[in-house]
Amino acid sequence: MSGFDILFFVFAGFALVSAMGVVVSPNPVYSALSLVLTLFSVAGLFLLLQAEFLAVVQVLTYAGAILVLFVFIIMLLNLSDFELMEVRMGNLGKALLTLAAVVAFITLAFVVHLTRITGDPAVEGFGDISTLGREIFTHYVIPFEIAGVLLTVSLIGAVMLAKKNLTKE
């Protein structure tokens, strides 16, 4: 077992354990903090796959900015009424949900097993940030600009939705 393998198992283990923490934790704030750990571990996995830029962006935007939004939502819900947040459901509902989760897991495992991953990057040295920049300037100019349009649309849409709630208050 090489050092890479050990690191992979460390990161993967952290990701799994903290992902469990997100689900199991009774306190939503702790769930959000577990999610930060999960995102960091996945960033570590990206690093091992030589996707440095992806790893850094993962930490900057997901663990940084988007988690802030999550914590925000948690704060907006009234935390003093924990009991209200408990999902009450009967045994039938629990059984159905468990069944659905198991089926989803088996399907996922099957798909992962069937997928043949060649291991060749799309472009030589793709994870590298300057390679990415070169590709954006040459092959992917149009998708790059469309990404800008997408961001603008999501900005306006998100502000519209958020404002709907603001005026209601």
Binding site: F72, L151, S154, L155, A158
Partner: peptide
């Protein structure tokens, strides 16, 4: 929250 949403968009930019 509104400001945070706007920030996230420009963060991605």
């Amino acid at each position: 929250y509104l400001v945070a949403i706007i920030f996230v968009i420009f963060d991605v930019e």
